Computed example of a mutant assay.
Amino acid sequence: MIYFDNSATTKPYKEVLDSFVKVSSDYFGNPSSLHSMGGQAEKLLSQAREQVASLLKVKANEIYFTSGGTESNNIAIKGAAFLNQHKGRHLITSSIEHASVREAMEYLEQEGYEITILPVDKNGIVSALDVEKSIRKDTILISIMQVNNEIGTVQPIEEIGKILKNFPSILFHVDAVQAVGKIPVSLYENRVDLCSISAHKFHGLKGTGALFIRDGLRLTPLFSGGNQERKMRSGTENVAGAVAMAKALRMTMEKSGVGIAEMKIIQNLLRRGLTDMEGIQIHTPERYTAPHILNFSLIGIKSEVFIHALEQKGIFVSTTSACSSKKKSPSKTLLSMGVPENLADSAIRISLSFDNTEEEAKAVLIAIEKIANQLRKVMK
């Protein structure tokens, strides 16, 4: 098997699974309980919070555990909008955000908020100047992802952060789900107020994530309940998941130096190989791109057909983001870049992890060319 769909989810590290089982078996107490078993669980939760914060170079009290990127994005966007509606009801985002950001914005629009959706250029990059031009007196939140989950473009978070230093009342939310472990995530330096991460994108477990909320900032909680996570996210904490996420993040960061360099080599190998083939158009630009994603179209071949044909060879890739792949509609990201609908319908996303090899990439290139040729003969 060759697994090239790591942006959808990654395989958990064995050590991560072991830590989850250990905590679930031996420290299963509720961290809100007053007895010693509850105290042990609470201590492990605190240690996990401190580890995640240390790895992200922030304070422990700025890390709130959630169920993943979607929940973190919703808490950040809706929580900021609800709390600050007396200051204004204008929000800014981009046309290539993840569905959990896009649909949260659409929900707020139905509630009377005004949303400015910024376009991207042909490379899928938002203009920091467009962000600045869109700011109004009633702007309360800007939400821009750091790495696009479909084409891998890195957005100008640093430039936007510099602009927002002149607008201290505007909150800055960054969806860093595809960034952690692949490119630097500098929250303080980039003037980020809110940041979402998800453990299963860096070899942790599904159903675990975190939201960074800058110290001193308040949001309106979306859940009512037992006041866990300092009233920001009520519900009994997933202690084993949090411990496992902290371990996954530490292991990913430790591997990232060598791992990122190797992913870049593999990404370039794939790019060169695809460029040499007929009937292929690459959408991921060469510059301003994360090292783990490569998006391309096979002209005249539906992506679903091609994905299933590759699967027969034991190769796993994807179309759009995993959250949108079953909707049978062209990628909104590619359409926003100006890619024609017929090409967007033929798009394939390869996404790498530190575990992938050059040998796998070479085998995938051979399979892509062979299957594409076979399908085109059948279609004729």
Rank of each mutant, 00 (worst) to 15 (best):
A48F: 08
E50D: 00
Q51H: 07
S54K: 15
S54V: 06
S54Q: 14
L55F: 06
L55R: 13
L55K: 14
K57T: 08
V58K: 06
K59N: 12
A60M: 11
E62F: 08
E62C: 05
S67W: 10
G68R: 01
G68W: 07
G69R: 08
G69M: 10
E71H: 01
S72T: 10
N73D: 09
N74Y: 10
I77F: 05
I77T: 04
G79E: 02
A80F: 09
F82P: 10
F82Y: 13
F82R: 12
L83C: 05
L83G: 02
N84G: 03
H86Q: 12
R89D: 10
I92P: 06
S94R: 02
S94N: 06
S94F: 02
S95M: 00
S95P: 07
H98T: 15
H98F: 15
A99C: 12
S100E: 12
R102D: 12
A104H: 00
E106M: 14
Y107E: 12
Y107I: 12
Y107S: 14
E109Y: 11
G112Q: 03
T116Q: 08
L118P: 11
L118W: 00
D121G: 00
K122I: 05
N123C: 01
N123Y: 02
G124V: 10
V126N: 09
A128N: 03
L129A: 14
L129W: 09
L129C: 14
L129N: 15
L129I: 14
D130N: 13
V131A: 01
E132Y: 02
K133D: 06
K133F: 05
S134F: 07
K137W: 10
T139W: 03
T139A: 00
I140R: 02
I140T: 08
M145L: 15
Q146Y: 09
Q146I: 05
V147H: 11
I151Y: 00
I151W: 01
G152L: 00
Q155A: 00
I157W: 07
E159W: 05
G161Y: 12
G161I: 05
K162F: 06
K165G: 13
P168V: 03
S169K: 14
S169I: 06
I170W: 03
L171I: 05
F172H: 10
